[in-house]
Design a protein around this nucleic acid. Structure first.
Length: 430
RNA sequence: GGCGGUAUCGUCUAGAGGCCUAGGACGUGGCCCUCUCAAGGCCAAAACACGGGUUCGAAUCCCGUUACCGCUACCA
């Protein structure tokens, strides 16, 4: 029976590093289950410092895990709830001579023996007994200290595997000694490397977005999971994209864990999100957009599909889709402005010619539209781009978009002609 | 300082003695396609920290050095 817990402290945000640790724990449990091993994933909030922890802080952790799809089977439990047991365990150690009173606090007496464990990611790690010192387990106010509370709680919850951040390596020998003093078998320990910022330092506020909440709304949770898992873990071959978590669960193994810290590369996250966006398609992406006005449109799916290939973030999809749907006004960007400024008359002429010819046609299919625009260009001795680019700019405010014929098709005849007409009028007024 | 951990392209990584003139991906540069590119196709530059061993042979094993990170609380 495998019992694993993720035990974050409520700090007001769920750090991406913590989220990744949770993910690894979760993957481990799911992988065991797929192989028919009973496994349980438990969430425990380390709210020892009651003064600083609030329900809202816990909620942030719950929200982050829910967003990523990291479901747990038991909990959330709270460390603070185990106070009586923590005290009883400490008193027992004192009674057995394994701990002693020190100025009102209870201090654990270290047996100066070497401590070694076989870390699930690092292999054997050992500490010399002479380097360990007696440490406080119960404060003078009888509240437990983290290192003691976790052990007591993990024993109580019959935890079999403890996977946590590298920063806990130094705590591990102390905790192992505590297991021994309590007469309990120690769990398997695995220490996953930290996540660093581009400067090689532990990822923190000054690196920008560090909480999973900061990524919600911009990125797909499945892309975030894919990205987080691949920072520090590798399936052992060249596979990068996991569109189906089940495949990741199957491939997951602590042997594939990296031992060194990883640097968070948002560029790669963006690329990966774009891939997931395309893979999901309009039907899948539409609900995520959380934009009722857009979703209500009969051609919403067509619009989103037109915009997907060039989108990296959810915001890209939404803003580009709203633009095509006429929900947002066109605001020309710098390059678009420069294009028009370079040859205002050429721009106006390109638009005018297009409008004139477009009004005549009844066939608004993308293929016909392309033929039409090309013939307009030919007939007037213009290059295709001299006709296409003005239309693109007038309709999107950008010099970059899907092919213009497709753009026109997705916008629809009436709307396109109306917006183009307004653009011609606007350019003539100047 | 002490203890512990880590060290492959700018970044994420493959590699568990010969398959490595070190592979993939992001990013970067170039070319092609072309009405545009942030799409698609092709190509390129780009790494085994250093020094000793062990071995017929080392990115892979051992030792040392260096660098970086973590812990060193009556924080978690």
């Amino acid at each position: 029976m495998i019992r694993v817990r993720f035990a974050p402290s409520p700090t007001g945000s769920l750090h991406v590093g913590g989220a990744r640790t949770a993910l690894f724990n979760w993957l481990f449990v799911q992988h065991a289950r797929r192989r028919d091993q009973p496994a349980t994933f438990i969430l425990r909030i380390e709210d020892t410092d009651k003064a600083r922890s609030t329900d809202a802080f816990t909620q942030v952790i719950l929200d982050g895990m829910a967003w990523l799809g990291l479901t747990f089977d038991e909990g959330p439990f709270f460390q603070g709830a185990g106070l009586a047991r923590h005290q009883a365990d400490a008193d027992r150690l004192v009674a057995e001579g394994k701990a002693y009173l020190d100025e009102g606090a209870v201090r654990f007496r270290i047996a100066h023996e070497d401590v070694t464990w076989n870390d699930a990611v690092h292999g054997p790690i050992s500490f010399h007994g002479k380097d360990l010192e007696d440490f406080i387990i119960l404060r003078a106010d009888r509240t437990p200290v983290y290192n003691f509370a976790v052990v007591s709680d993990d024993v109580e919850m019959r935890i079999t595997h403890v996977f946590r951040g590298d920063d806990h390596i130094s705590n591990t020998p102390k905790q192992i000694l505590l297991y021994r003093a309590l007469g309990k078998a120690e769990p398997v320990f695995g220490h996953v490397p930290m996540i660093h910022g581009a400067d090689g330092k532990k990822l923190s506020k000054r690196h920008g977005a560090t909480a999973v909440g900061d990524y919600q709304g911009r990125f797909l949770p499945e892309a975030m999971v894919n990205f987080l898992a691949l920072m520090g873990w590798s399936p052992g071959h060249d596979r990068e994209l996991f569109f189906d978590v089940a495949e990741m669960i199957d491939a997951f193994d602590f042997d594939g864990l990296q031992r060194k810290p990883a640097v968070f590369d948002e560029k790669k996250l963006e690329w990966m999100n774009g891939e997931h966006l395309k893979h999901k398609g309009a039907a899948g992406v539409l609900p995520v957009l959380d934009d009722p006005a857009l979703t209500a449109l009969p051609n919403a799916a067509a619009i989103v599909n037109a915009v997907l290939p060039r989108s990296k973030t959810i915001g890209d999809v939404r803003s580009q889709a709203r633009l095509r749907a006429g929900l947002d006004p066109v605001t020309p960007d710098e390059k678009a402005l420069a294009y028009v400024a370079k040859d205002p008359e050429g721009y106006r002429k390109g638009l005018q010619l297009t409008v004139d010819s477009l009004q005549q046609t009844a066939d608004w299919s993308a293929s016909n539209l392309e033929a039409l625009l090309r013939s307009v260009a030919d007939a007037n001795g213009l290059k295709a781009g001299q006709v296409m680019q003005p239309v693109r700019i007038a309709l999107t405010g950008s010099t970059v978009s899907e092919p213009v014929n497709e753009l026109l098709a997705v916008i629809g005849k009436d709307a396109a002609l109306e917006r183009l007409g307004a653009a011609v009028a606007g350019s003539a007024a100047r």
